[in-house]
Simulated assay, not measured.
Amino acid sequence: MNLRVFPSPEATAQAAAEAFAGAAREAAQARGAFHVALSGGSTPKLMYRSLREMTDVPWEFVHVYFSDERSVGPDNSESNFRLAHDELLRHVPIPKPQIHRMEGERRPLEEAASAYAALLPERLDVVLLGMGDDGHTASLFPGTAALTAGGRVAANWVPRLDTGRLTFTYDEINAARERWLLVTGAGKAGVLRQVTAGEVDYPVAGVRDPVWFVDEAAAGELTR
């Protein structure tokens, strides 16, 4: 298990930002582009704030995608794209044609999923992910159809939330060169312990060989 534990959410985010910069430099040198899928959530938000202050990211080589999106437009406060835009993308010199958002406002969502799958690169370098208190990741929620979906992107109805989502499938997540899970807070500690021990089949357990960036609060039950 590739587990990296840091003292606080801020330190976790900073470490992930530094790893992002390093991966971007390596990909740019090796392949001429860095294809990364971003995520929503509080820890990625902190990471975005760290990234925009860094001077060693080759932004001209960065191509941005998203691992999931709510069924809203880009200006909606719930939009993962809006979070990334407000906290990172508008602050850094990424060429606009290299930013690819999911069309959460498009109906039916199945058309949005197909359209997004068609514009993805052959292989992503890094997929950033979080983990919910219920063990979901991206918008792969417990008991939902997308857990067994094929292809690269799925439209997923989430009954508990009474809404649809767009999400990468496991196939797409696990095809990336690297998968990073950013998890902070004591509220995630029990789920993290169960997932790492293989005790419960949470959706996040379907992510193969991830790098875990976690804070001490989230890791608090791992030594028990």
Rank of each mutant, 00 (worst) to 15 (best):
Y202Q: 09
E10S: 15
F61Y: 13
T55R: 15
D68K: 01
N80M: 06
R177F: 13
Y65T: 07
R82L: 12
V5R: 05
T55C: 10
R4P: 11
L124H: 07
T169C: 04
P203K: 07
L83P: 08
V36H: 04
G40H: 07
L38I: 08
N2D: 15
D125A: 06
P121M: 13
P9A: 12
E111F: 03
D68H: 00
H85P: 11
G135C: 05
W180M: 01
A175K: 14
T167V: 07
L119G: 03
G187E: 00
S42C: 00
P108N: 07
L109G: 06
F141D: 05
D56C: 08
S50C: 15
Y48H: 15
A115D: 15
G40N: 06
F20S: 04
R208T: 08
Q98K: 13
A219M: 00
A23G: 12
D201W: 13
G151C: 04
Q29M: 14
P203W: 02
D134Q: 04
V158S: 03
V195K: 04
A112E: 05
A17E: 01
M47K: 02
R193T: 01
S79F: 02
Q29K: 15
A118G: 09
I99R: 09
R123N: 00
S42N: 08
L119S: 11
T43D: 03
S39I: 03
P95G: 05
L51I: 02
D125E: 05
S50P: 00
Y48T: 14
A13F: 06
T184L: 05
K45W: 11
F141K: 01
D56A: 14
R106H: 13
W212P: 09
V158F: 10
A145D: 08
A19S: 10
Y116Q: 04
V207L: 04
N76A: 10
A113Q: 11
R152W: 03
G185W: 05
P93D: 03
G132Y: 00
L38A: 04
P93F: 00
G22A: 09
L181H: 13
F213I: 01
L166F: 03
L129Y: 01
P142A: 11
A138P: 09
H91D: 03
L124T: 08
T163I: 00
V204E: 11
A13W: 01
L46S: 05
D68S: 02
V211E: 13
W180V: 02
P95K: 02
G150F: 12
E69F: 06
E53L: 12
V204G: 11
G40R: 08
R107P: 01
S79G: 00
N76H: 15
L192D: 03
E18Y: 05
M102I: 12
G104Y: 01
E221V: 11
M1P: 10
E178I: 12
A30I: 02
A84E: 06
V207D: 02
H91E: 01
W212C: 01
L128R: 08
D133Y: 05
G151N: 01
P108I: 04
R82D: 10
P210R: 03
Y116F: 11
R25C: 15
V72R: 08
A176C: 10
H136W: 02
R31P: 02
A154H: 09
S71G: 03
E221N: 13
Q98A: 13
H63P: 05
T167C: 07
R31I: 05
P203G: 07
R52S: 12
P9G: 12
R123P: 06
E87L: 14
E216C: 07
